[in-house]
Design a protein around this nucleic acid. Structure first.
Lengths: 185, 185
DNA sequence: GTCTATAGCTAGATAGAC
DNA sequence: GTCTATCTAGCTATAGAC
């Protein structure tokens, strides 16, 4: 077997970039081929089920990245609450590159032919909510308060990403993150 | 000339439904033809510049609807502040059908080939912000507070629409609207 | 103004050589 | 595992009859 031109992680990172910016229908295999440096047939070799598998793999990859980096930072018992929060928020900034990157869950939530990815997107969003609920509970919020704050935090993240993008104003995302930090301090 | 099968407003309403759910790239002329009841060639007769003009017309139509119904309600000097707020929020519920409809600005904000609609989307979003700033100013908020609350209100609307959709939970949108009402009461 | 028919193209996907 | 070449379906868009 010939060696891989790009390894799995590099490949998934490139695929993520395109799907995140273009959405599912807006992404063409040709564009994925150009950005990854792999010819179309090679992409189909890596993902035998085609475009759907490519997008599904991106969702899986990002889901794992978020769990390993963001959620893990929030629950790392070696750190103080303050440090956990700080580290987690740092990784959130990284994920969205300070508001420049759209959320992949949002980007793939609109596509044709019924709900190709609805289940994984719903699962991913629930994991985000659960992570912030746990963060709130560890700060001795009541269960109800922890739930309310978690939902509002996700609203803030998603909404501020959209406003930052449509208004070309990254400070909206940044000040929203600060507000979230205050909510959990 | 033969009579129109569907008038301009009916036509735009149907086009809106598809673009809002599918996005620009996800929408096919065939699907627009099926839903409107007009054959493809007839759609091109109504919109000589094709799909781009169809989507641009949808943005224009919704922009006008929002100005005439929502923003107008907020500034209707015949009403008390309380009534203005109540009427405006009622129209917002109607626009998004209680959280079931995606925002057309969001739906069209992701598309190929550079920024086809970025300018109108940005303009539309700025009008929303300005409307809530004015609402705040009319309630004697300071300029800074009015701006902050307006931005947060738009974040809340956009974010809660996304969460309602991805989590299949319309109550998120509804309780967010209640929260906004409290913010301006 | 609406329609049938079709042009021209590009999309996603596959076959088979290396 | 990657590649060139190709298939087929579906897309946007147009021509021309009524």
């Amino acid at each position: 077997m010939r060696p891989q031109k790009v390894n799995d992680e590099e490949l998934l990172i490139s695929l993520t970039k395109v799907f995140r910016e273009r959405g599912y229908e807006g992404t063409s295999i040709k564009e994925l081929s150009d950005l990854t440096g792999l010819k179309k047939a090679s992409l189909y070799h890596r993902f035998p089920n085609g475009k759907q598998e490519m997008a599904a793999s991106v969702l899986e990859y990002i889901g794992k990245w978020v769990a390993d980096n963001i959620f893990h930072a929030f629950t790392n018992e070696a750190d103080t609450y303050k440090t956990r929060l700080k580290n987690g928020m740092f990784q959130i900034r990284k994920l969205y590159e300070g508001g420049k990157n759209p959320c992949i869950l949002k980007a793939l939530s609109t596509q044709n032919g019924m709900e190709l990815f609805h289940q994984s997107i719903s699962k991913g969003m629930k994991e985000w909510v659960a992570a912030f609920i746990n963060l709130g509970l560890s700060m001795e919020f009541t269960k109800q308060m922890a739930e309310e704050k978690a939902i509002q935090t996700l609203i803030d993240i998603q909404g501020s990403l959209i406003l930052s993008k449509t208004l070309d104003n990254a400070t909206i995302f940044e000040s929203t993150l600060k507000k979230i930090e205050n909510r959990y301090s």
